[in-house]
């Protein structure tokens, strides 16, 4: 069973390499934002796998924290791409 988890670790490492490639050479900025969000998800999967491998539950809070940070970062990038500013002073159209 441990071989299965190590194979998954190697596969996720390869996908993280692909995400980093897309992050560096991505032709447009939305490509890079999606690659950054996927990198966060791959990191969360990696921490979950290592949490199984070393048999501890201390990493689970870090998973939740990373998920929250990746979500807020993606929302901020999306709003910057959509509206051009991150924090609006006054929301006048609604």
């Amino acid at each position: 069973m441990m071989v299965f988890f190590w194979v998954m670790v190697i596969l996720i490492s390869l996908s993280m390499l692909a995400f980093i490639y897309r992050l560096i050479v991505g032709p447009s900025i939305p490509d890079r934002v999606v690659a950054l969000d996927s990198l966060g998800v791959a990191l969360i999967c990696m921490i979950g796998l290592f949490s199984i491998l070393v048999d501890t539950s201390f990493f689970l809070e870090i998973i939740l924290l990373l998920a929250i940070l990746a979500f807020i970062g993606t929302v901020a990038f999306s709003k910057f791409l959509e509206k051009g500013e991150i924090i609006q002073r006054d929301n006048d159209h609604s």
Binding site: L65, I72, I87, N91
Partner: peptide
């Protein structure tokens, strides 16, 4: 860490709504 998480929650409110 707790303070940073609370601050990021308020930042999420600032992102979705506006400063006012």
């Amino acid at each position: 860490v707790g303070g940073l998480l609370t601050a990021s929650g308020i930042v999420l409110l600032l992102l979705a709504f506006d400063l006012k």
